[in-house]
Simulated assay, not measured.
Amino acid sequence: MLRDDLRTLWTEPRPPDAPVRVRRDWALLAAGLAGVALEAALRENVVWRPVAVGFTVWLCLLPLWRRTRPLAMVTLAFGSVLLLQVASLVAAPHVPVGLDTGAVVLVLVYALPRWGSGREIVLGGSVIVTVGAVCVVTYESPVVEKIVGFVFLLLPGVVGAAVRFRVTARERQLDQVRSREREQLARELHDTVAHHVSAMVIIAQAGRVLADADPSAAVEALEGVEEEGARTLEEMRAMVAALRDPGVGAELAPPAGVADLERLVRTPGDRLKVDLGLDGDLDSLPPALDAAVYRIVQESVTNALRHAVDATEVVVRVAAEQHTVRVSVRDNGRRTGRGRDGYGLTGLRERATLLGGTLRAGPDADRGWHVEAELPRARSESRGHSRPRR
């Protein structure tokens, strides 16, 4: 078990989309250089002042590459610390060299488990522990202070690992949400296609029964339609069965659509007034699009009920145009927290993308929260796929 865990850690890749450099990197560099200047000017008991200043400036520069080269930066920083420690012991025993601003090296300890691969974490962690142990042993200080100093050195690494675990867990949950949304859409598409294919099979069977005068060519064609339709239906059922999670039963009820919005907007207890407006030809929407419109309104109204503080009204507008359907849901409440997209909105955005549309969600210009979606009536109009006319 332990060997498997170590192998998994060793092969762990780096987190994707690590930013190369952001504003706070330059702010950290400026703060570090300012700290070096202040210490060099104001501290009187600095040993080897030019060396200490140059060494600390070097440490302040290394965090600029901590996300893209975490192992290299840790090796350079702690290798330099080790060399300086050895030099100080040889030339001036028991006298530490360096400035307090050199504590910026703790940023590299954090960045290693946060942005490094498993191999980099193992190798870099070995370097940190080795150099830290050497420094702790060579300093003449009480044992308690040595232990506290060593723990203080490793603590940023623990924080970095915890942050990475949290972000990875959220990404995994988002992937599961997207997967479930794809599965639900596949079920709805399956129900739609199955209906038309079943009708095709029935018509073909009726054509065989009603064919008179033994039109062999027509019967042959009808037999081909029947055979192809039955095969398509069977393959579609097998595909959706493979997409479903084990133990999840089929939903026998048809998916809700625009026709069910009137019932949806009757909120429990009438805590919120929901103003529903429907415009255009919404009766002939493709089933997948019809269900998507309902899901967007349902999730948006539910979010307003749960998260909109002091909200009194939700305005829902669904407008069908020649080529697109636009959905807009606004509330007049306040949002608490950081306003990060929840799993529901992530699923809706995935569904809109699969249908060839877009979905945006965020604070409104005046007050409240606004969800806006634009969905094509025919997927071919946005993706370039052909679609047969019925």
Rank of each mutant, 00 (worst) to 15 (best):
L83N: 00
V90F: 04
P19F: 05
V258L: 05
A373P: 03
A238G: 13
T68E: 10
G116F: 09
V297D: 01
D260M: 03
G124V: 01
E313M: 04
E223H: 06
D5Q: 13
A361F: 02
M239C: 04
P268H: 11
P63D: 10
V47N: 14
T68G: 04
V193F: 04
R349I: 02
A291Q: 08
L354A: 15
G125V: 02
A37E: 02
V86K: 10
A34S: 15
P70T: 04
V81H: 05
V329R: 00
P215H: 01
R170P: 09
G249A: 07
A259N: 13
P50C: 12
L153S: 07
A37S: 06
R170L: 14
T302D: 14
L89D: 12
T168W: 08
M1E: 03
L210E: 04
A288M: 01
M1H: 13
V136C: 14
R182M: 04
E120W: 09
V57G: 11
V167H: 06
V293N: 02
D366Q: 13
A91G: 04
S126D: 00
M1S: 15
R43P: 08
V258A: 06
V148L: 12
D100P: 03
L76S: 09
V265D: 07
E188K: 00
T353K: 14
T168C: 00
L84S: 07
D212S: 12
A194D: 12
R66Y: 02
V107E: 03
L2S: 13
V81P: 01
R166P: 05
V219A: 09
G249I: 07
A217P: 04
G247A: 08
R231F: 09
E39K: 01
E223C: 09
S198V: 11
A77W: 01
R180S: 14
R340H: 08
A238W: 06
A218F: 04
L6N: 02
W115V: 01
F165W: 15
